[in-house]
Amino acid sequence: MSVPDLKPMGVNWVGLGTIVRRDVQRMLRVPIQVFIAPWSSALLFIFVFGYVLGGTMRTIGGHKYIEFVMPGVLMMNIITAAFLQSSSAIYFSRFMRFVEEMLVAPLSYLEMVVGSLTTVVVRATVTGLGILILGLGFCATTIESWPLFVFWIVAVSIIFGLAGILVGLWSKSFEQLNMPVVFFLTPLSMLGGSFFTMKMLPDWLHWMLWANPFFYFINGIRGAMIGVDEAPQGLSIALTLLMIAALGGLVWRLFSRGYGLRE
């Protein structure tokens, strides 16, 4: 038997597509957890802030309170969906050792990361669009700028997809895997201006928003949806792109060292 074709490989598009196909198939095994839960949660927010409390709250920037809150609710669900998708996928594949299927294959680190992030963006986009449709259906939101709306969904899901990969590589137990949700994601998104404006805070507490990266994401998508933003869109976009570059570089470095993947 002769040694076969040994030409250098280009991008392994089929391999990359297979990573996405596999992750989407795995995601669809648990549709209630993946899609129904965030949509139900958004419906509850619409009911509570739109109909129960909405009438008692003053308008903000000419918008009803539910319209002000909806972008934050949407963003919180995108963040959670993106983080849980990548962190659980990578942790579970390490825990059950089927990550080795990819390690023995002719896949580059970039293809593995891009494949994983593509599924993250798919999940976050479907989650976000579902919440948007609910919001539009109940007259709880609008869209000022579609390009900005798409940018914020994709950019934020990439950031939290990368953060999820880092946590999935680092975690050695399910408890460690859940720690960032409890100690970072939930508190920072609650304190990032989802439910209040900067003006509602005393002056000495304004730093709490400026120092919270979630504020820029929520502010950005709120600008895209109802045209109300407290920080300049340019600043929010620049900080977001910077975070993508920093987290992407870190994930790249860890993958190329085989951290958490190779023995």
Binding site: M9, R29, M96, E101, V104, P106
Partner: peptide, 27 residues
């Protein structure tokens, strides 16, 4: 490689497991 331990997604079906592996190899 046929490894010593079962490094497989336990909730996947046989044809998917084999098909995914072929996909990783660019088939």
């Amino acid at each position: 490689l046929c490894p010593q331990e079962f490094n497989v997604d336990p909730f996947a079906k046989p044809a998917d497991i084999v098909s995914w592996a072929g996909g990783y190899f660019g088939m």
